[in-house]
Simulated assay, not measured.
Amino acid sequence: MFNYTFRWNQAFNALPRLLEGALVTLEIALLSMLIGIVIAILLTGFRLSGNALLSAIARTWVEVARNTPALFQIYMAHFGLGAFGIHLSPYTSLLAGIAFNNAGYLAENFRGALKAIPDTQTRSARSLGMPAIQAFRLIVMPQMLRIAFLPATNQMVWAILMTSLGVTVGMNTDLAGITQELNARSFRTFEFFAMAAVIYYLIAKAVTLAARALAWRMFRY
């Protein structure tokens, strides 16, 4: 018999704490994207450099990031590095694991975007007297951003959802960690996790809509 009594008042009373955790979740996701973008640009440069060693490093990073579970990557940051005497906090481990994952996916996005731009455009810019850096900044980069922007938005949403894996390494200040703590105290599993799911959904939708608006403003011409 279904005799569960819903007590939504407890979940709504805890909403301020859940929103505090949502801010931490968003903070980790944003930082992991910024770090991931920087590393991804370097990896893309390595892949296109023609240097065998640099290309191998970049290819290995991308292969590991894209073909192993995100949970494994977070575990390696938190527990694996401990074997070498490097002990990271749950926050740093979660951030490092997600940034590692983001860098792998974003590097492929950037490389694909660059490959989609004909070489003739760069050669034409150089023939007009543009230095290589100026040609890249004015000709190549705007097109690369247009192509890679929406896939990067998807990665941002994925990063937000990946933060929920932090509970496995003791993260207790983000949305998933606070939800787990409230559930352990009250055993109102359905109410608290349903509330957290709604918050995750709203954050993801807000990021997607903001990205579409930004893309329309930046790339409408």
Results as ranks from 00 to 15, higher is better:
33 M>W: 07
33 M>N: 08
33 M>S: 08
33 M>C: 14
33 M>D: 03
34 L>T: 07
36 G>V: 12
37 I>G: 00
38 V>F: 10
38 V>L: 13
38 V>Y: 00
39 I>M: 06
39 I>K: 01
40 A>L: 07
40 A>Q: 02
40 A>I: 05
41 I>C: 13
41 I>H: 05
41 I>L: 14
42 L>V: 07
42 L>K: 01
43 L>F: 12
43 L>M: 12
44 T>F: 03
44 T>K: 13
45 G>V: 04
45 G>T: 09
46 F>A: 12
46 F>P: 03
46 F>T: 03
47 R>I: 03
47 R>K: 15
47 R>L: 13
48 L>I: 14
48 L>W: 00
49 S>F: 12
49 S>A: 11
50 G>W: 07
51 N>L: 09
51 N>G: 04
51 N>K: 13
52 A>C: 00
53 L>C: 05
53 L>Q: 14
54 L>T: 10
54 L>R: 13
55 S>C: 07
55 S>M: 11
55 S>T: 15
55 S>E: 14
56 A>G: 07
56 A>P: 03
56 A>M: 11
59 R>A: 15
59 R>C: 02
60 T>Q: 08
60 T>G: 06
61 W>S: 02
63 E>P: 00
64 V>M: 12
64 V>W: 03
65 A>W: 00
65 A>G: 03
66 R>P: 04
66 R>W: 05
67 N>Y: 03
68 T>E: 02
68 T>D: 01
70 A>T: 13
71 L>S: 03
71 L>G: 08
72 F>H: 07
72 F>P: 00
72 F>I: 15
73 Q>W: 07
73 Q>G: 01
73 Q>P: 00
73 Q>F: 01
74 I>H: 06
74 I>G: 01
74 I>A: 03
75 Y>T: 08
75 Y>I: 13
75 Y>L: 15
77 A>L: 12
77 A>M: 15
77 A>H: 06
77 A>D: 02
79 F>N: 09
79 F>M: 11
79 F>T: 15
79 F>V: 15
81 L>K: 11
83 A>F: 14
85 G>F: 02
87 H>A: 06
87 H>F: 11
87 H>T: 10
88 L>Y: 00
88 L>R: 06
88 L>T: 08
88 L>G: 02
90 P>M: 12
90 P>R: 07
90 P>L: 07
90 P>H: 11
91 Y>M: 06
91 Y>D: 02
92 T>W: 11
92 T>G: 02
92 T>N: 11
94 L>K: 08
94 L>I: 10
95 L>S: 06
95 L>M: 10
95 L>K: 07
96 A>K: 06
96 A>T: 15
98 I>E: 01
98 I>T: 11
99 A>Q: 08
99 A>F: 10
100 F>S: 08
100 F>I: 05
100 F>P: 02
102 N>V: 14
102 N>I: 13
103 A>D: 09
103 A>I: 08
104 G>D: 03
106 L>M: 15
106 L>P: 03
106 L>H: 04
107 A>H: 05
107 A>E: 09
108 E>D: 13
108 E>L: 12
108 E>W: 09
108 E>S: 10
